[in-house]
């Protein structure tokens, strides 16, 4: 079976007046359908760059990037348009792709109901809490039924308490919808608790350091339960060490 995502020997450099910045170097990995994969790496190593290439915003300088399906991208901040109501915000993707049909709109409204935002449909983003806004942003991406979800530190704007519950919520939603997902995160526990595999990158330029397959002995694989698994600490320490090397 074809993988959903394949990165083969990908390199990328940014060019600016100040010179050339190598952001990604000879990176290879694949992601299978239905998998939840996290990418962790030191700050500024090139994680967002990887997602941008996946989203087709620019091609790699060398190597090949293949994605077998449609993409939904969730950015670091929710970026809900403050002049639109929540309902109108989640229609944005449909409008842009010329798919604002009755069926698609009612599917979007179903999602709002399913994930507890229906009462807030006519509210403006500023009237919602950070967690609710993030959920609205996820719904905005899910509305287009993408095969692959790209999540670029979608929880980093939230405070710790909210962050835990929103990560749990959104992780559960994504599994429930059976989506393939790639999550970029600074937070090791978040990455482990949500993912089937964790890709650890080196400092800039991003190189593959290690891929961990996360196997946890819990009955029900929800992010909250995952944190209580006995193996959790072990993965955490290992990844922590791998990331820490460059700080020393």
């Amino acid at each position: 079976m074809l993988p959903m995502v394949s990165f083969q020997d990908v390199s990328l450099s940014y060019h600016s007046l100040g010179g050339e910045t190598r952001a990604v170097s000879h990176l290879s990995f694949t992601v299978a359908e239905g998998e939840f994969v996290s990418i962790v790496g030191p700050s500024g190593c090139g994680k967002s760059t990887i997602l941008s290439m996946l989203a087709g915003l620019f091609p790699p300088s060398a190597g090949s990037v293949r994605v077998n399906g449609t993409i939904g991208y969730m950015l670091q901040k929710d970026h809900l348009l403050e002049w639109r109501t929540i309902r109108s915000n989640i229609f944005l993707g449909l409008e842009i792709q010329g798919k604002a049909t009755k069926e698609n709109k009612s599917f979007a409204e179903e999602l709002l109901k399913k994930y507890g935002l229906w009462e807030f449909r006519d509210h403006f983003p500023a009237q919602l809490s950070g967690g609710m806004r993030q959920r609205a942003a996820l719904i905005r991406t899910l509305v287009l039924s993408p095969d692959l979800l790209l999540l670029d530190e979608p929880f980093s704007a939230l405070d710790y308490q909210t962050r835990l519950s929103v990560a749990d919520e959104i992780g559960t939603i994504i599994r429930q919808e059976g989506k393939t997902a790639i999550l970029v995160s600074h937070d090791i526990s978040e990455a482990i608790s949500l993912s089937d595999r964790v890709i650890v990158l080196s400092g800039r330029p991003a190189r593959l350091k290690k891929i961990h397959t996360i196997e946890l002995s819990v009955e029900e694989r929800t992010p909250m339960k995952a944190r209580e698994a006995p193996e959790f600490r072990e993965y955490f320490n290992q990844i922590w060490k791998e990331l820490d090397v460059h700080v020393a």
Binding site: A55, L57, Y73, L75, K77, H79, L92, I96, Q97
Partner: peptide, 11 residues
């Protein structure tokens, strides 16, 4: 980033 949002949707 808001412009990126539209570009990601293929706008």
């Amino acid at each position: 980033e808001k412009i990126k949002l539209i570009r990601v949707f293929g706008g």
